[in-house]
Design a protein around this nucleic acid. Structure first.
Lengths: 238, 238
DNA sequence: TAGTGGTCTAGACCACAGC
DNA sequence: CTGTGGTCTAGACCACTAT
């Protein structure tokens, strides 16, 4: 059987994808419209069904199309205008800006879980937790207070790390591989203690990121990160 | 040729994916390790190469593996602990909470672009732009001031919409399909005008989302959204 | 040169939806 | 029932990498 002419390098399945996306982008096919069946595309492009199938399957994975067995393939409903903000390890973030990152661990202890915290971890009140408070600096300027509680069962060596050299995040990524996480971002007046650590005025607007991650079915860590509102922002692109 | 026994519904390619992911999750295969070749997996599972190829290709698309033609397949470098925060149309957000969303358009005008704004749009200073200021309420409580500038070329009918009935977001999704977007999230003291619209104290912490979206290669809209810090937060899960 | 991944074919059997 | 998508086979040719 003849191979497709080799001089134009674009694979056939990619050309079919391009064709389908083009029909949608141009507006000729609208949301919910029925897309030609695999058999129809096989005839249209003169290729095997496996090739067409790959094109359509990948576009389905990419949420461009939806498929219903027995019914057909349809243009997927328009994605809502979503925005994805990435929140990364702060040391990477700072270094990516070409700046110097330094950490100043202020507290590293084992402490019993207060009631609210125990609830978050799904542990009994008073259960032992690891607790750290670390201030992160960018070019010497304090940009984050990281107040973190850790489940000892997930990271037994948490207290033995040198947090001037690596971030809790980096240790936990190895010790307790991320399973899933929930977050919130708020704007709150800086409490006095936090304001002192960030060298800002108490009560001034601060950007607060809370993050709770689970690993192997257990809550691994609950962290609250405070940033000076006038110096820090989360950015992202889609 | 014998089909695989039909009673366990899991497709073969999925079982191969599960196997590969399991080896990595268990730590038996580490970041950068060489993964068995397609031929080896073909022998190990007693299936055809296309089936193995699909499993490995999909895991590559999912960034679990990386492949180098001629060299082999490897365990992908660990993903950094990223967090994705979704930012949605505020009306959908409020309704998803089962609450009532209402909009109060305070301003709807055509106005010349100031210098900074013109720069953002890539237009000449003084070029005409559409401008709207809308306050969004959740159960009657003001939760967002949306200050938006729109490129008339992208949404010529922008000023004719009824923004008590739909959000600018909803109109723009149809008029100027989202191409890409950049964002930032900040914590800032509320300026006096904004504070009045949100019925909060001037200077109190507010959560500010800025969003700039492009459509068909042009900057379509630049929006700044102010939220009362004590009433609003962005949340997400990964 | 041998082994790897990248792609493609021309069939096949099956489950499911709609008529 | 027909047509749809979901999966799988047993080959094939090619480009690339490592030795």
């Amino acid at each position: 059987m003849e191979q497709h002419s080799a001089q134009d390098a674009t694979p056939i399945f990619q050309r079919i994808k391009d064709y389908l996306v083009g029909e949608i982008a141009s507006g000729r096919w609208k949301e919910g419209d029925l897309v030609p069946s695999e058999q129809a595309l096989v005839r249209q492009f003169g290729v095997s069904r496996m090739t067409v199938n790959r094109a359509v399957r990948e576009l389905t994975a990419e949420q461009v199309l939806t498929r219903r067995q027995g019914a057909g393939t349809f243009v997927a409903p328009q994605k809502y205008q979503a925005t994805l903000v990435e929140i990364r390890n702060i040391a990477d973030e700072v270094r990516a800006r070409g700046h110097a990152h330094t950490s100043r661990p202020l507290l590293l202890e084992e402490a019993p879980a207060a009631e609210a915290l125990a609830l978050q971890f799904g542990l009994a009140p008073g259960a032992p937790l690891f607790h750290s408070v670390i201030v992160h600096h960018e070019n010497g300027q304090a940009i984050q207070v990281e107040d973190r509680w850790v489940n000892p069962a997930c990271a037994p060596a948490y207290l033995q790390q040198d947090y001037t050299r690596l971030t809790p995040n980096e240790h936990l990524m190895v010790a307790a591989p991320l399973q899933d996480a929930t977050y919130s971002i708020e704007a709150l007046p800086a409490p006095r203690e936090v304001a002192e650590m960030l060298a800002i005025a108490p009560g001034s607007a601060s950007l607060v990121l809370r993050r709770r991650t689970t690993s192997q079915g257990r809550v691994a860590t609950v962290a609250t990160m405070w940033h000076p509102g006038h110096l820090y922002k989360f950015t992202g692109a889609l």
